[in-house]
Amino acid sequence: MKILVAIKRVADPDNANKVKPTADKVDTTGLEWKPNPFDEYALETALRLTENGKNNKVRQGEVVVVTIGNKDTETQLRSALATGADRAIRVEAEDTDLDGRLVAAALKSVVDAEKPDLVLLGKQVVDGDSNSVGQMLAQLLDYPMATFAATIQEEADGRLLVGREVDGGVLSLRLTTPAIITVDLRVVAPTSVYSKHTDAGFKYSDGVRFAALPAIMKAKKKPLDVKALADLAPGKTNGSSYFRFEAPPARAAGVKVPDVATLVNKLATEAKAL
């Protein structure tokens, strides 16, 4: 199976409370760039789908990673290559000039050229929190999609049985490739993803894999192509204009209560919440 994985870098999500909204931008100075966590899960999913879990050094297919960003974002691409991806594509653009509609249009051109069996994306990037590119891309390609995937099983005939986390439960879909899947948190649990090469009883270690040092050296030699946004999304511009930012209202600090009786008393008389 050939899989295209879309990835994006974000300001360190574990320190998202340190971002500073100013009138005209959200200042992330001082925060390290990290891969969007959901995109890391998408890459891990792609690797699991192109291997036998017992022998994960051999790729049974090809994994191509793509990002849209400036030259610095090649750091995240190299890291994905070191983790196991075969090739990388960077579409030159500044992040502030993009919205979901434009990103989806550019990715469509990448898919048209690469013809992957499957496109994997994180369900959302945790800076813009928009959750839209996978769905838009599916429509532009007229591909079936499964968003918020928590489990994926490749069946013997190559179809994909996907468990989606939806409000109130799990909705299962069976997709015939080529298709789009966006992944949720639990897709990297030990028994969430099985390629047809991996035994049903196999258990992965929890979470995403990390690159070994020799792989980091080798990744520097793997192919990385650069493309121009204008070539991939001709005539399209960013349709979303952010013109003001602000910090959310601060919550007043609360009090500590010494015991359960005081808690119930305060909830009843002060907060009038009971």
């Binding site: 998202a16 971002v19 909204p21 959200v26 929190d129 952010y242 930012f245 602000e246 959310p248």
Partner: peptide, 8 residues
């Protein structure tokens, strides 16, 4: 940004 900012 996980609710740490509002954008208009």
């Amino acid at each position: 940004f996980a609710g740490n900012a509002f954008g208009y």
